[in-house]
Simulated scan of single mutants.
Amino acid sequence: MKTSISLLITAAIALIGFFILNSSQTVITSNGASFALGAISVGIALSLLSTKSAGESSSELPTSTNSKTIYVGNLPYRANENDVKELFAKHGEVFAVRLMKDKRTGKRRGFGFVVMAAADSPEAIEALNNAEYGDRTLKVREANDPRKSERA
């Protein structure tokens, strides 16, 4: 889908370049050469823009090598994402918190996942597993990767 849109945009800009180069008093007299020059310049511009934006966004998101996903079970139903984030932030850098909800009722199901720095996750698991939180005993462990179980 993105490729076809990129091709359409490239073709449109190449046509514009063709008309501009063809109408001005330039050295290029061939219609094909004008079109090709427009397409090449647009391709170069688009590739420079896409590599710049890809480089910027990849540094902001945690990758699997520097983050771990942790399962948190037996959470109080009244706990929200901010509460859980504050709890885990005491033990390291937290990237994201996702608490599961029942699809039908929208109520929390009492478990969720925390994505945090890989270096900090063992300490957080050790400190929070079997800890009391909101009159409940938390169950904290490294989350299973469903992709690993599919390969085995």
Rank of each mutant, 00 (worst) to 15 (best):
T3L: 15
I5C: 03
I5G: 05
S6C: 10
L7P: 08
L8H: 10
A12F: 07
L15C: 12
I16S: 07
G17K: 02
F18C: 00
N22R: 11
N22H: 14
N22K: 12
I28P: 04
A36T: 12
G38I: 07
A39W: 04
A39D: 07
S41T: 15
S41K: 06
V42D: 07
G43F: 00
G43N: 08
I44S: 08
A45H: 12
A45V: 15
L48Q: 08
L49R: 08
S50V: 14
K52T: 15
S53G: 09
E56S: 12
S58A: 13
L61Y: 10
L61F: 10
P62K: 02
I70H: 02
G73L: 03
P76M: 01
R78Q: 07
A79Q: 02
A79F: 05
E81S: 08
N82I: 15
V84F: 03
E86W: 03
K90A: 13
E93H: 07
A96G: 10
L99W: 01
M100Y: 04
K101W: 02
R104D: 14
K107H: 14
R108Q: 11
R108D: 05
R109G: 01
G110S: 09
G112I: 02
G112R: 06
F113R: 01
V114T: 14
V114S: 07
V115H: 09
M116P: 09
A118D: 10
A124V: 04
A124H: 02
A127F: 03
N130A: 13
A131L: 02
Y133R: 09
G134V: 05
G134I: 04
T137R: 06
K139F: 07
R141T: 12
R141G: 05
R141C: 06
E142I: 04
A143I: 08
D145Q: 00
S149H: 09
R151Q: 13
R151L: 10
A152F: 09
